[in-house]
Design a protein around this nucleic acid. Structure first.
Lengths: 161, 161
DNA sequence: TTTATATGTTATACTTCATAATGATTATTA
DNA sequence: TAATAATCATTATGAAGTATAACATATAAA
């Protein structure tokens, strides 16, 4: 059986309006990326209501949970460079959500602590984020989410250590 | 029973060297983000061996699969702005991995097609990416991966339409 | 005491990403 | 048909995110 050849081989535009992506769809990493993009975008919108960017929010959460930490350690935890954390801490301090306190036995470093306002905003924002997650993952069962969490942790541990 | 108070309430540095992230770890989106970061980084390294960035690679794959498409449609599929695609297509063309062919019935648009070299590089890079995925997700069973793919698709469909 | 290292900061550059505007071409519509 | 609008690729440009070098101050190590 001979293969049929296209009758017209002159350059033409691909006729379909939407492209196929069979090759990429076969890649698990691609599926995760596309799904995560939605989560990320919706999270950004959610936090925008509190005038917070994702990174600023995570910084606030981490400072609240790790009261008294330094910018150096925080930058490490957030996986960003120290210089880039300065502006974030500046903003949080200007908005009086945290304070930079001087450390007695180490006058190089600051001790970062959330204020009462900061703590309250943190709670409100966190509630909004939980609602956002409930909505984003409404298509998953509780068992799904549990399994998904375990898989993500496994991937992380598989490549972090 | 009275609660014990810390003996010293003067500002001190958080004593632990590594910060906890209990609050963030309770968020599924955060788990996905952290896991995906590893995948993304390893993918970048994998493609660097072919002198390809992730976006350039996906563009090449999409052009191969959708021979004759236009830059406009491709930008749409890649979810980037048309102006930002120009440099990518320029690079692919300069490396003779694709060609911009003029379209007969529409002299505004180009018809993008992979060259033989481009097709071959695409195959090689794709094999490397498959190996990368096999390695990255070696901690997951086949059933895990299948379930994960389904979940990601569900999230995507839940928020795309 | 000398040297090395850590902290926060500034300055800077590079990359990524988004928008406005333009020339050429095609599609629409009056 | 003529006038208007829309489309395609492109340039220029700016905003935002990210990475590096260098510095002053302070602590730790030799």
């Amino acid at each position: 059986m001979s293969k049929l050849k296209p009758a017209d081989i002159s350059p033409e535009l691909h006729s379909d309006n939407v492209l196929t992506e069979f090759t990429l769809q076969a890649l698990l990493g691609y599926q995760i990326k596309r799904a995560y993009n939605h989560v990320q975008n919706d999270l950004s919108e959610t936090l925008a209501a509190f005038d917070l960017r994702v990174l600023t929010f995570t910084a606030l959460v981490m400072i609240k949970e790790n009261a008294g930490t330094s910018q150096s350690k925080l930058a490490n935890a957030l996986q960003i460079e120290r210089p880039n954390l300065v502006a974030i801490i500046d903003e949080l301090e200007n908005r009086e959500l945290i304070v930079r306190e001087r450390v007695v036995h180490d006058r190089r470093a600051y001790s970062l602590v959330v204020t009462k306002t900061g703590s309250q905003l943190c709670v409100s924002a966190l509630n909004a984020v939980k609602a956002h997650e409930k909505n984003m993952f409404s298509c998953l069962t509780a068992a799904d989410k549990k399994a998904l969490t375990k898989m993500m942790l496994r991937i992380r541990q598989n490549n972090e250590l």
